[in-house]
Design a protein around this nucleic acid. Structure first.
Lengths: 207, 207
DNA sequence: GATACAAAATGAGTATAATCAGTTTTGACT
DNA sequence: AGTCAAAACTGATTATACTCATTTTGTATC
């Protein structure tokens, strides 16, 4: 039992990779719990490292900065939510209902912990690093895939301008919730729908 | 000449107030120069305090956090620019030309120092504090006043939802510049124009 | 002018995010 | 099993944003 690879046909992920993933999960879980309990500012990186049972140095191997941990927490939870919403049978749920569900989930973050939510939005909408940018893209992709599945068009269309607009739509929706301008959500939804129809019809979105 | 108030009819601002304003100006100037020369991250608060010839403690009396200094710098420069643009005689400059001038000025920040610009946008669009929020409002007001003057409608209309949308329009424009999607600027301008016509026609903007 | 009071300034001190040089663990290969 | 290079881990150390108890400055009243 020496080599780390069993005799399966395709290459096994490998123990190293699995350990890394497990550790990442432990870190994110620890961060999520502590942020929830004490808030972002009052949680030290030391505490997170202790809770995840790793050294402080290791922590910064998985997250370039403390704020990255917040994004990791959000990303994981939101991806799960979006996938669950679009995976559920489309009972009475039309396009609008599902979009609304995703939006509402984002808005919940504002309701529960405004400071944390603000930080999240900042980091997600104007990402500093390429890595961060791909976090947004992944979230957008999840929504796209769900929508294109429902509409029946081909998935996996990528258009930076539309990605930006959709990211904005999500962002703007949350911003409006924060401002208490709830009645504007309809406008926001319509904007996203319009953008998505451009996406599906293959318009170049220059106009 | 003991009392700090001369015998003018109305109350003189007072030396204290004047000193405070002058000190604030010195701080902003010092911060601007250092940020330009060395970048935001590589400039310490100590350096700024030294350059402005004040103690480090005093610095944080004028700015709650280091990032506030960035916003102060931006706010001052941008307000001056916006006012200059709308104060100039409307020679060949229509509505679009002036808006574009304001937008381009914002985009310049991206071109010159992307990191600094990203930080700015984050801070301006999702302000943490009420004080920060009023910075955005003031900028928006400057644009509104210029536009309503040109169009001839009554100035000083305030609608949080429209403020949010306009702030977004500025933000989005800069985001697109950053993404290199320059051809989308037209869409952004049209959005703002549309919002402004709602503003002028007195629509409630719920729709 | 002297006294009292509030506002502002100060810089030594503190807390902590992030680093890095050294150590341990891993897994492929013989 | 034994060897080795690369990957992962560690926590003592560092740099610095921000605080706070104390001092200085400005203004009002007599």
């Amino acid at each position: 039992m020496m080599p780390g690879k069993t005799d399966s046909g395709v290459a096994t992920p490998g123990r190293r990779e699995r350990n890394k993933l497990a550790k990442r999960a432990r870190i994110v879980a620890a961060a999520r719990d502590l942020f929830r309990r004490q808030g972002f500012a009052d949680t030290t990186t030391q505490q997170i490292a202790d809770a995840a049972d790793i050294g402080t140095g290791t922590l910064f191997l998985y997250a370039r900065a403390k704020e990255d941990l917040l994004v990791m927490v959000f990303r994981d939870e939101m991806l799960e939510t979006v996938r669950a919403i679009f995976a559920a049978p489309p009972a009475l749920a039309g396009l609008d209902a599902r979009l609304l569900a995703v939006f509402n989930r984002m808005a919940d973050y504002h309701a529960n912990d405004p400071d944390l939510a603000r930080l999240l939005l900042k980091e997600l909408v104007v990402p500093r690093s390429e890595a961060r940018r791909s976090d947004v893209d992944e979230l957008m992709d999840a929504i796209y895939d769900g929508l294109t599945d429902m509409i029946g068009a081909e998935p996996r269309i990528r258009n930076p301008a539309i990605v930006a607009r959709s990211a904005f739509a999500l962002y703007y929706f949350a911003l409006l919730s924060w401002l208490g301008a709830g009645q504007d959500r309809g406008w926001c939804m319509r904007l996203l729908r319009e953008q998505l129809s451009h996406l599906i019809n293959g318009d170049s979105a220059n106009d």
